[in-house]
Every structure is written in structure tokens, then in C-alpha cells.
Amino acid sequence: MTNAEIGYAPASDEKVAEDRKRRMDKARQARTRERVKLNLIRLLMIGGFFALWEFASGRLIAPFFISAPSAIFRRLGGWIWSGDIFYHMGITATEACAGLLLGSVFGIVVGTILGRRPFLARLLDPIITTFYSLPKVALAPLFILWIGIGMDMKITFTAAIVFFLVFLNTYTGVRNVSRELISILYLMGANEMQVLRRVVLPSAITWVFAGLRISVPYSLIGAIVGELMASNKGLGALLVRAQGEFDTAGVFAALVAIMVLAVIFNTAVRLLERRLMPWKSAEQELEGAV
């Protein structure tokens, strides 16, 4: 019997999919409109805040405490003009980036292994929990003793912080992989590596990225705290120097630079996320378009 004989018509299905596509387009337009509106209101809010700040400075509060937006932007302009800011930002970014990379690679590897080997996980659980509870900042002096005060110390320090965040998320993700999916792959004759690549890692990657997203600000904390403690370069050092000179505008300017760096990092992680999880953006588009 052929499909034609019984009027086999997948058309209904295709129509469903088409309808869905149309609804998705509509939802996308609505989202764009909302985005424009949100950005406009945001701009107004921030502009108002700066205006208020500029007005208050010198009139309501002493400039020593709050400086003024105009002074801060002048300082920033000067740093940009001299190129100083790029040097310091580059140092901090390198430290945070390298630490983030190192910490997350270790975190992903260890998290995956322990996630797949419950015995090992049970064995190491109390030890890991103990180290996790330790405030990582307290490790900085030890790293200074071991490695010195160069960039590699900040990288190690950052990596130590990031490791735990990524490790715990990866571990949870790997433990949460659907057992049925794993069974089905094994029934297809897959080996452990194939199951890992096709099921476990793609499934855990949502969690890994959750860990990475949390790690971004922490990687900057790592790099900057390291610089605050012992360094003459990087945004942390710039901050310390400005504070030492009672240069409030300089402190604020350094903070702005740190914020810019954080935003760049966050955006990079989000882009990477979209790139590595194309099926997620497909799912998100469907949200609200059931």
C-alpha cells in the first residue's frame, strides 16, 4: 500500500509548522518594538541620574566624595588620549581571561569526570565542599608566596575562583542528563566517549554556561583583588593609585573602565553561548508562540 492510496497527507503537519513560523515572526516583531522602548527609557533614566549627579556635585555634596560626571569623563578622556587605560585594561583583561579559561577548562573536565563516576564523586564530596566553603580571597596570600606578584599569580588566583563555579555547575549538569537518552545511545551501540560527546556534554552545556556566566564577574574580582593586593599595573593598580592620590575622579574613572570590561566579557560569553547552542535560540524563539 502506498501513501497516496490512503491519502497520506503530511500537509497538515507542514501547515502547523508554517503557522508556528508566522507566529514566531510576529512575536519577534513585538520583541523588537519592546526593546526600542526599553532602551529609550533606560537612556532617559541614566541621563537624568548623571544630570542630578553633576548638579549635586559641589552644591549639595563635596566633590571630594562624589567628584562629578564631567570630571570623571575628562579623566577618562585623558587616559584614553595617553593610551594608559588600554594598557591597564589589557593587563586586567588578560589576567581575567586566562584565569577564566584555565579555571573553566579544569572545572569542565573534573565536573564531567565526577559526574560520570558517582563513586569518585561520593569519595571526594566532603573535600570539595570544604574547599568550596573557603573564601577564595583568603588563598591570595598563599598564591603570592608561591608564585610571586606577577600576572601569573592573578591568573592562578582567578582560575581557583572560577574552577569551583564551573565545576559545580558542570557536575550538576552531567548528573542531570536524561538517563533514557543515555540508554538509547547505548542501545545504538555507542561507547562511553560517543555518549559523552553526543548526549552528556551537549546536555550539560546549558549548566556549564550558567557557571560561566556567574564566573565572568568573579574572574574580574580575582584579577582586580590580586592587583589591589600587589601590583603596579592593571585596573586594580590604577584604582589603588588614584585612591592614594585622593583622586576621586580617577577612582570613578577606573570603576567605569572595570564596568566596560565586565560588559565586554558578558557579551562575549553570551555570543559564545548562542554560537555553541543553536538549538537554544530556536527554543527561545518559540517562547510565547506555543
Binding site: 503537519d13 502547523v16 509548522a17 508556528r20 543553536p278 538549538w279 518559540l286
Partner: peptide, 10 residues
């Protein structure tokens, strides 16, 4: 298409 973009029958 990803599974999330398909109908139940597909």
C-alpha cells in the same frame, strides 16, 4: 529543524 521546532507528529 530542531525537535523543539517540530510538531508532535513530525
Amino acid at each position: 529543524s530542531y525537535p523543539s521546532q517540530l510538531s508532535g507528529g513530525m
